[in-house]
Design a protein around this nucleic acid. Sequence first.
DNA 1: TATTATTAAATTGTACACAATTTAATTTTA
DNA 2: TAAAATTAAATTGTGTACAATTTAATAATA
Lengths: 144, 144
Amino acid sequence: MDKNSDTLKLENQLCFPLYACSKEIVRRYKPYLDKIDLTYTQYITMMVMWEVKQINVKELGEKLYLDSGTLTPLLKKLESKDYVKRERSKHDERNLIVTITEKGEALKSKAVDIPEKVSACMTLSEEKAQALYSVLYEILDSME
Amino acid sequence: MDKNSDTLKLENQLCFPLYACSKEIVRRYKPYLDKIDLTYTQYITMMVMWEVKQINVKELGEKLYLDSGTLTPLLKKLESKDYVKRERSKHDERNLIVTITEKGEALKSKAVDIPEKVSACMTLSEEKAQALYSVLYEILDSME
DNA sequence: TATTATTAAATTGTACACAATTTAATTTTA
DNA sequence: TAAAATTAAATTGTGTACAATTTAATAATA
């Protein structure tokens, strides 16, 4: 096969639809997230916080696939909104412990309807959604 | 079902693995793209240019799911590297026509091996890759 | 235990990404 | 055809992303 012919066409790439699809779906979140004054990245951070209540930056970054360069300013912003508290660990001052606040907990009830509203704006069968989900995690796991 | 229980868990979201997977794969491109001094966004832009040779910013944005706010500075950078030429349309001066240069054409041969190198670092069967590809475009199409 | 190595966040710098606004050109319409 | 509407890029402003470096704390080791 002629290497130059087709491999570099956008339509033959797997990464591109992944990249485009991710961005388009995140964009669908925006109108709903605007109402509760969160960006998408702040939203997924709060999803972790709603679940674990307390976590340090390193572990948070591993869950979200983000580093401190992204998380540090983001967490400062969430702190300024009083959704989380940031404090150094007493046992190991290198660690910064992030803890959800009452106000952060209360925000959850305003966010609970967002996932279904977003998925409503795209038609995808339950089987295909499940298949997509599995393949994505398979890829993520294979890249660790 | 209790609405508050599970819907807001990261692991139950479809958007999150999509977002994370997209970023991780783009990151895998970086070492190869660094060698030809392109960012990922510049690379997918050049992929379109290698294919169409000439296009205006609006159509380019539709193909790439990007707007002029992203494309204007990016195209200026590609122009400064002499990979593309930017000039207003004579028929309609609102349109900016982007044209690939000789140097831009020549860059293609250096990029042709990148897709296979990136896909080599993740294990995914041909069937699953094909299925993933189909579902992603199905979602993209359903969101137009 | 003093030195070295490692680790976790923060910082710095570059490059998107996109909503909203502005500017300029072209079309539409009153 | 003059005014209004539309269109395409560019600009502005905010918020990621992430590599690379720095800083400070802790752990390992000579």
